[in-house]
C-alpha cells in the first residue's frame, strides 16, 4: 500500500472517530472547519495551480447560499431541487465570472475578483426584495427524512464529511492528472503551453468554474449550518479569512488549505476563551508563521518528514504523483 493511501485512511479514520469522541460543540466546529476547508480548497485550486489569487471564492458560496435561502424559504421548493438549482446557478455565475477573468493575470485577476465579489456583496445588501438586505433570510432548514433530522449536528456532520472527503479526493486526482499538470504549466510558462498545443484559456476557464463549484458546495453547507443567509459571508472579511487560512496551511498542496483552516479555527476558539484581544494574538501568530514559513504549514511538515525519512527522494519539491 502506498503512503498516500495510508494518509487518506488515517484522515478518514480521524473523521470517523471525531463525532464519536467529541461533544456537540466540537462536532459543529468540525462542520464549520470542513465548510471553510472547501472554500479554502476552492481558493487554493486557483492560487496553487494557476497563481490566480481570487477574492471571490466565498462569493460563490454566497451565491449558492442565497439561492438556497431564496428558493427554499421564500418559494418553499423541496430540498433536493433547491440544492440542485443552487449548484446550477453557482455554475452559471462561475461561467460568467470566468469569461470575464480568463484573460487576466495576477494583479488584474485579483482586482477583478475583488470587484466582482464586492458587487455581489453590494447586491445582496441592497436588493432587499429578493435577499432581505442586511437582515438576510432566516429559517433555512434541511428536511427530516424518515425521522432523521438532517439539521442535527451529528447527522449534518455525516453529510458534510462525506461530500468534503469526496471533493478532496476528486481534487487529489485532478492535481495528478494531465489537466492538473497543465495548470501548473500555464502558471509557470503560459506562452509555452500554448505553443505545445494546449488550450490555455479553456483550461483556465474550466479550472475557474470547477473552483467556483467547490465554493458553491461550501455555500450549500454554510447556509444550512447557519440557518440564516445574510450578506456577511460575502464580505471581504470572509474572503480574506479564507485566503489567510490557505496561505497559512500552504495553498500549493492538497491538504494545506484544510490544515490552515483547522489551525485558524482552533486558534480562534482557544484564544478567544482567554482574552478579548484574540484578534491581536491571532494576527501575531499569522505574522510569525508567514515570516517563518512562507510556503505554509503543509510544506514545512512535508520537508521535515522528507528529510527524516527519505533523504534521497528530496529532488522534487512537490508531491504530485507517484512513480509508475
Amino acid at each position: 500500500m502506498k503512503r498516500e493511501h495510508l494518509i487518506i485512511l488515517a484522515i478518514v479514520a480521524a473523521l470517523v472517530v471525531w463525532p464519536l469522541l467529541m461533544g456537540n460543540y466540537a462536532v459543529s466546529q468540525a462542520n464549520r472547519a470542513m465548510i471553510y476547508a472547501l472554500a479554502a480548497l476552492s481558493f487554493s485550486l486557483l492560487a496553487g495551480r494557476l497563481g490566480w489569487f481570487s477574492l471571490c471564492q466565498t462569493t460563490f458560496a454566497g451565491i449558492s447560499g442565497y439561492t438556497i435561502a431564496i428558493l427554499g424559504v421564500r418559494y418553499g421548493l423541496p430540498f433536493p431541487l433547491v440544492v440542485t438549482l443552487a449548484l446550477l446557478f453557482t455554475a452559471v455565475s462561475a461561467v460568467i465570472f470566468g469569461l470575464l477573468t480568463v484573460r487576466s493575470r495576477q494583479v488584474s485577476f485579483l482586482m477583478l475578483t475583488l470587484a466582482l465579489g464586492q458587487m455581489v456583496w453590494a447586491l445582496s445588501f441592497q436588493w432587499v426584495d429578493i435577499t432581505g438586505g442586511y437582515n438576510g433570510i432566516a429559517g433555512v432548514r434541511m428536511p427530516v427524512y424518515g425521522g432523521v433530522d438532517l439539521n442535527d449536528t451529528r447527522v449534518f456532520y455525516i453529510l458534510v464529511v462525506t461530500v468534503t472527503v469526496a471533493i478532496f479526493l476528486a481534487v487529489w486526482r485532478l492535481y495528478r492528472s494531465p489537466f492538473g499538470l497543465l495548470l501548473l504549466g500555464i502558471q509557470e510558462n503560459e506562452q509555452r503551453m500554448r505553443a505545445l498545443g494546449h488550450p490555455v484559456y479553456l483550461a483556465r476557464f474550466i479550472a475557474f468554474v470547477l473552483a467556483g463549484m467547490i465554493g458553491g458546495v461550501a455555500g450549500v453547507f454554510l447556509v444550512y449550518d447557519m440557518g440564516i443567509m445574510s450578506p456577511s459571508p460575502l464580505g471581504l472579511g470572509h474572503a480574506v479569512w479564507v485566503l489567510t487560512a490557505a496561505v497559512l496551511g500552504g495553498y500549493r498542496t492538497l491538504l494545506g488549505p484544510a490544515l490552515g483552516v483547522a489551525v485558524l479555527i482552533a486558534l480562534e476558539t482557544l484564544v478567544s476563551q482567554y482574552t478579548d484581544r484574540h484578534m491581536m494574538v491571532i494576527g501575531l501568530v499569522l505574522l510569525l508563521s508567514i515570516l517563518l514559513m512562507p510556503r505554509g504549514l503543509a510544506e514545512v511538515f512535508e520537508q521535515y518528514f522528507k528529510r527524516k525519512s527519505k533523504p534521497q527522494a528530496s529532488v522534487t519539491t512537490t508531491t504530485r504523483g507517484e512513480e509508475p
Binding site: 503512503r3 494518509i7 488515517a10 484522515i11 511538515f301 512535508e302 518528514f305 525519512s309
Partner: peptide
C-alpha cells in the same frame, strides 16, 4: 504522500483543543 504525520499531528492537536 508525505502528509501522513502532518495530519496525525494536526489531528491530535485538534483533538486536544
Amino acid at each position: 504522500m508525505k502528509h501522513a504525520k502532518t495530519l496525525i499531528i494536526s489531528g491530535m492537536s485538534a483533538l486536544a483543543v
